[in-house]
């Protein structure tokens, strides 16, 4: 009796299994023609700490970005006399980034330092794919800097074009896992206004940046840009340092806040790449923050009622 029961059970298990296999194998066959999807959101934001990330704005989204770099925490200009730099603002920045399409972003910004206006375009050329057909993202970035301040002396800005600087960068990133993304950024800066007469007008730079998620909404971010040791002359009267920033990035759905520490006094590439004169080792590190708020400017023209979102 027991044997029959056992047989019956095993038989019914077998048929159940066979059935399950039939549906599953059919489903698998359906799925086999699946296309590779893009690996999105290597970074949460268009910026890391100082540098740009490979991300662009979504179509018709406008990002209002307010950035602040305080004074030196330590050293001659820091300590309790300036409340560890909080009394000082070495640079302030307000900028708008607008997504013309999902892949092309235009931006305008203005910094306190040099009263610098920046105009930039950013184009996402390559997108990482879930299969091995495309292992990286590649974004091209170009930025015009325009110094709007009065000249410090008569000789400065002899020609109006001396106020302009041009920065070109290609940003190559990869999202290694849902937590870890890394990027490399070779760049080239052309400028006419140099602080140290021995310095080169054309500077190569090589940036590295990364994002490590701690939770879904909180990430550790860092970037480092090599400027010294590339095309820059060695015998300068002024001592320049490579910009290095670390921070915590908090995303709350539409807002991104980041709390940063960095040695660079300045915010925009055209300033921080050539002119960083503070060092992490000599009290030159400072606190800074970024507030970014995203606005959707135009409702999508998609009339599909199943896709419509509505804010009351």
């Amino acid at each position: 009796m027991n044997k029959i029961k056992y047989l019956l059970i095993s038989f019914s298990l077998f048929t159940l299994h066979a059935r399950a296999q039939e549906a599953d194998s059919l489903l698998k066959a359906l799925d086999s023609g699946g296309v590779a999807t893009t690996v999105d959101a290597a970074f949460k934001s268009t910026h890391v700490v100082l540098s740009h990330s490979s991300e662009t704005q979504k179509k018709h989204d406008l990002d209002l970005r307010i950035r602040h770099h305080f004074g030196d925490i330590g050293g001659r200009f820091g300590s309790a006399h300036t409340l560890y730099g909080l009394d000082v603002a070495t640079d302030l920045f307000i900028g708008l980034d607008y997504g013309v399409t999902d892949d092309f972003t235009v931006a305008i910004g203005r910094s306190k330092q040099d009263e610098l206006f920046n105009f930039s375009g950013k184009y996402k050329l390559l997108k990482q794919k879930s299969n091995s057909s495309m292992p990286i993202n590649m974004t091209l970035f170009a930025q015009l800097g325009w110094i709007a301040r009065e000249p410090f002396n008569d000789g400065e800005f002899g020609q109006y074009s001396d106020r302009f600087s041009y920065f070109f960068q290609s940003i190559i990133s990869r999202k290694f896992s849902s937590r870890l993304s890394l990027e490399v950024m070779p760049g080239f800066l052309v400028r006419n206004n140099i602080e140290d007469s021995g310095d080169s007008k054309n500077l190569f730079s090589l940036g590295f940046a990364g994002r490590m998620k701690i939770t879904k909404r909180l990430s550790f971010i860092a970037d480092y840009t090599v400027v010294n040791g590339l095309s820059r002359p060695k015998d300068l009267t002024e001592t320049y340092y490579n910009p290095f920033g670390v921070g915590l990035e908090i995303e709350t759905g539409g807002h991104i806040f980041s709390l940063n520490f960095m040695n660079s006094e300045y915010i925009v590439e055209n300033n921080f790449i050539p002119n960083t004169k503070k060092s992490w080792s000599k009290g030159g590190v400072r606190f800074g923050f970024t507030i970014s708020r995203n606005f959707t400017l135009f409702k999508s023209k998609n009339q599909d009622p199943d896709k419509k979102s509505k804010i009351y």
């Binding site: 959101a41 949460k44 979504k58 179509k59 989204d61 849902s178 539409g254 999508s300 419509k308 979102s309």
Partner: peptide, 13 residues
């Protein structure tokens, strides 16, 4: 989604 950022947050978060 009709807003891409929302779609990103849906997938990521």
């Amino acid at each position: 989604f009709d807003r891409k950022l929302m779609q990103e947050h849906f997938n990521e978060n």
